[in-house]
């Protein structure tokens, strides 16, 4: 008797106090390093949205490796908007789930990428191994930390940045593949997401260099104090363009299209751009970018569209099953 009564009481109390459903909710499914950015941005957007005479909206966040997050949305996670690490992952929402139209990337300015970033090196204070450029990462005895390109968007940008460097330096794809293969021989652990790798490097003290999103590297410096780490900008890197999209199938079902579109548009507003810069993303808006120019290192950047013919070419070539990454990794 007492067991039954206890179970019923527990159930009843849990049901009564269960999560309260707000009038309108918006789910933003994002990748790993944007946690801090969106926690600030959501507050700012809500203020802006209410100032326009709308009711407050509850914004829910989900974070994880970019590829994994796209998979979850395809599997039925009801995201109103996705803010992922690269357009290849959002393409999958069209290809596998038919959740968005094929031309989703043309719907917002700058190919739907309101902010950019790049890939830099985070090294231990004083740079004890003297790591200055990509060449130094393939030397024997250097441990490189980077996540798994299969699940992490950041990891794919890392891979392509190293590839672009080798291609420009050695002039051939075969040599670039050998170079990148050498680099991955120096990787002791492949985490599933960028944040996992940062924790491996910063907290667990594994590795000599972390290949990191520029914003993630700055955040690690800020959170863990500048005493233990420093940022090294390589001679060449890649312009990382994390895109955003409204998930049509979900917003139309939930009736949240208006607020979802306003949410993404607000990323392009002056305040949205300033918040991005504050969290160490490079703003697209030139005026605001120049306000924050001092905080970002100047480096030569290749782009996914010009140098790799876009993600539609790069994704299958490098990262799908049997692609270059698999060839490199299986060869080891």
């Amino acid at each position: 008797m007492s067991i039954r009564r206890f179970a019923l009481a527990a159930l009843a109390s849990a049901l009564i106090t269960g999560p309260v459903v707000a009038a309108e909710t918006l789910l933003n499914v994002s990748y790993d390093p944007t946690r801090e950015l969106y926690s600030d941005f959501n507050k700012a957007f809500n203020t802006h949205w209410q100032a326009q005479g709308n009711a407050a909206v509850t914004i829910q966040q989900s974070h994880g490796g970019s590829g994994k997050q796209a998979r979850a949305v395809i599997d039925g996670l009801r995201a109103d908007v996705v803010t992922l690490a690269l357009s290849g992952d959002i393409d999958e929402l069209y290809k596998l789930g038919k959740l968005i139209p094929e031309d989703w990337q043309t719907r917002l300015p700058d190919a739907s990428t309101p902010y950019t970033s790049t890939i830099v090196f985070l090294v231990r204070k004083g740079n004890p191994k003297g790591l200055k450029d990509w060449d130094d990462l393939v030397k024997p005895g250097v441990e490189v930390i980077t996540p798994n390109p299969k699940t992490s968007g950041g990891a794919r940008w890392n891979f392509l940045a190293a590839w672009a460097y080798a291609q420009q330096k050695f002039g051939s794809e075969a040599k670039a593949q050998a170079f990148v293969g050498q680099l991955y021989k120096n990787v002791p652990v492949l985490d599933t997401g960028a944040r996992g790798s940062t924790i491996t490097f910063v907290n667990n003290q594994i590795g000599d260099v972390l290949l990191a999103w520029e914003n993630e590297a700055f955040l690690a410096l800020k959170e863990e104090g500048g005493d233990n780490f420093e940022i090294v900008a390589p001679s060449l890197s890649i312009l990382a363009e994390p895109p955003v999209a409204v998930v049509d199938a979900n917003v139309d079902k939930k009736g949240t299209r208006k607020v979802a579109e306003a949410y993404l548009n607000y990323l392009y507003s002056d305040e949205g751009q300033r918040l991005a810069a504050k969290h160490f993303y490079r703003p697209r808006n030139q005026a605001i970018a120049s306000e924050y120019a001092k905080q970002f290192p100047q480096l030569k950047l290749v782009t996914i569209d010009k140098d790799f013919n876009g993600w539609k070419t790069a994704q299958p070539k490098f990262f799908n099953d049997g692609g270059v990454f698999d060839q490199i990794y299986q060869a080891q």
């Binding site: 179970a7 849990a14 049901l15 269960g18």
Partner: peptide, 9 residues
């Protein structure tokens, strides 16, 4: 709450 609810069911 969610944990207790999941356990309670």
């Amino acid at each position: 709450q969610l944990t207790l609810l999941a356990v309670g069911i």
